[in-house]
Structure formats: structure tokens, C-alpha cells
């Protein structure tokens, strides 16, 4: 069977700058896959290339054997690629429930005129969407915030809202861009729990970018290390942790006097 997500020979230039060089990736259904690397290594660019924000200069991207390279972001998202953002990308004037409702957008089956005139079909669909949204919010333990503006929530709760929103698009694979950025160790442990829970309950594959080794070690089955757009190591976490090239990239070369 074809892998869920297959990226082959992906290369991207920003002007003359080679941001990502010959990146290859295969993620099977239900796998948790990590991408690590120091700042400026091209991790987020890799994410943006696969999710369609930029179209790669070269290479192919396939989701369940279907070519998704060059499609618009919302089309790729609709095909089953959910994501969260490095710096929370929430809608600050919207309440928590509306965030989750919004992620049902591509599955709204009423017409525009139905929305204008409040057709019975529109009302019925909206009720279903709200019901499903509340269920998801409860699952992520933020149900009690449903009617509040996101900005009023504690940081950890905002992270969970973002995760719930990504899951509401009904993804086959979930992209997490530094899910623990700015979190306390306590919140970090909670996040690990949540990701495990999502993985278990939804059976979704997860592809995550992370700085913190501990997080990656605990969660991932396989890890790639990216430095200046190039993959320098690939394998199970324990192996990566002891790879001299990786240690060099993170800590620098040992000086020889």
C-alpha cells in the first residue's frame, strides 16, 4: 500500500537561496513522525511547502497516492491535511466555539442563498456543526470556554483550542508546528498526553516540528534532522540522539586545542 504522505526530491528556492534541498519523506497511516533541527534550518518552510503555502520549485508531494503539489491551501486542507501554527494563529475577535465551527467550512452543504434566507437545511446543518464542535471542545477539555473570546484563555488552553480546530477539519494527517513553544514543563507534559490521546482516539498520523528533544524522544517513532535545508540524519529517536552530526548541529563542534 502506498504511504499516506510521500514527498520526493522536494527542493525550494527563495530567489537564489536554497531553503530546502532534496527533501524526502514517507509517513505511514497512524505514524508519529518528527522533524527536528536548529533555528533557521528550514523546518517551517518544509511545512509550508507540503501544506501548499508555497509551491516547491522541484519535487513531488502525494497524499494517499494523489498529487497535491500546487493545489490551493484550502483544497489541500480539505483533502485531509490539518495543521497548527508555530505562533498561535487564532482569530482574536471570535469565540472558541466559532473557531471549531469554522473548520467545518468545506463540508457545509447548503448554498449561499440558503445562508442568506436561513433555509431549514442551513439551520439543520449548522445545528449538527455546533453539536460536533461542542463534542470536540469537550474532548480537548476546553468546553467550558466555548462562549469566550480566545484571547481571554490561558495559553495552554489556546493551544488546545488550536489543536481541536485542526482536528475539526477531519484530517488524515496532522501537522504540528512546535506544539510546545512557550510552554512550561507542566503544560509540556499535558501536551504530550493530548497528542497521544489524539493519536489514539482519532487514529491520525502526526508530523511534528519540535525543538525539545525530550518531547520528540517520548512521542516519535521516527525522526529526521534538518540543517540549512539539508537532511543530515534519519531514524528512530534514540539513534538520532547519539548521531555525532546531530550533536554537532545542535551544540557545535568540540574545539580541539
Amino acid at each position: 500500500m502506498a504511504p499516506l504522505l510521500k514527498v520526493k526530491n522536494m527542493t525550494h528556492f527563495f530567489g537564489g537561496l536554497r531553503a530546502v534541498d532534496n527533501f524526502n519523506l514517507e509517513i505511514e497511516a497512524g505514524q508519529i513522525y518528527g522533524l527536528i533541527g536548529p533555528n533557521g534550518a528550514g523546518k517551517t518552510t518544509t511545512f509550508n511547502l507540503i501544506t501548499g503555502v508555497h509551491t516547491p520549485t522541484e519535487g513531488t508531494i502525494e497524499l494517499e497516492g494523489e498529487d497535491i503539489k500546487g493545489l490551493e491551501v484550502h483544497r489541500i486542507a480539505d483533502k485531509g491535511l490539518g495543521r497548527t501554527f508555530q505562533n498561535l494563529a487564532l482569530w482574536r475577535h471570535m469565540n472558541v466555539l466559532d473557531h471549531i465551527r469554522m473548520a467545518h467550512y468545506s463540508r457545509l452543504d447548503y448554498s449561499l442563498f440558503g445562508a442568506f434566507l436561513g433555509s431549514p437545511k442551513c439551520h439543520k446543518r449548522e445545528r449538527e456543526v455546533i453539536e460536533n464542535s461542542r463534542r470536540l471542545l469537550d474532548l480537548f477539555d476546553v468546553g467550558r470556554f466555548a462562549d469566550q473570546l480566545v484571547g481571554n484563555l490561558p495559553y495552554g488552553a489556546q493551544r488546545r483550542v488550536e489543536m481541536a480546530r485542526a482536528m475539526a477539519t477531519n484530517p488524515k494527517i496532522l501537522f504540528l508546528d512546535e506544539p510546545t513553544a512557550g510552554m512550561t514543563p507542566d503544560e509540556l507534559n499535558r501536551m504530550i498526553e493530548i497528542i497521544r490521546q489524539v493519536h489514539r482516539d482519532f487514529g491520525v498520523a502526526i508530523f511534528l516540528i519540535e525543538h525539545r528533544m525530550k518531547f520528540v524522544m517520548e512521542l516519535c517513532e521516527s525522526v529526521q534532522t534538518l540543517v540549512f535545508g539539508e537532511v543530515i540524519a534519519e531514524g528512530p529517536p534514540a539513534e538520532i540522539q547519539n548521531n555525532p552530526k546531530v550533536i554537532e548541529a545542535y551544540l557545535g563542534k568540540e574545539d580541539i586545542h
Binding site: A77, F85, A89, L90, W91, H93, L108, G118, T169
Partner: peptide, 21 residues
């Protein structure tokens, strides 16, 4: 309606709106 609320999503963060289909 959710369709109309999409306007707010586009206003507050277009990239996020796009990623949410």
C-alpha cells in the same frame, strides 16, 4: 452562519482560515 463567520476568520488571520479549509 458559519459561511458568514468565515469573513471574520479571513480578517483576523487569513493564513489560518485557509488552512481550516
Amino acid at each position: 452562519s458559519t459561511m458568514g463567520k468565515a469573513l471574520n476568520a479571513v480578517r483576523d488571520n487569513e493564513a489560518a482560515a485557509n488552512s481550516m479549509t
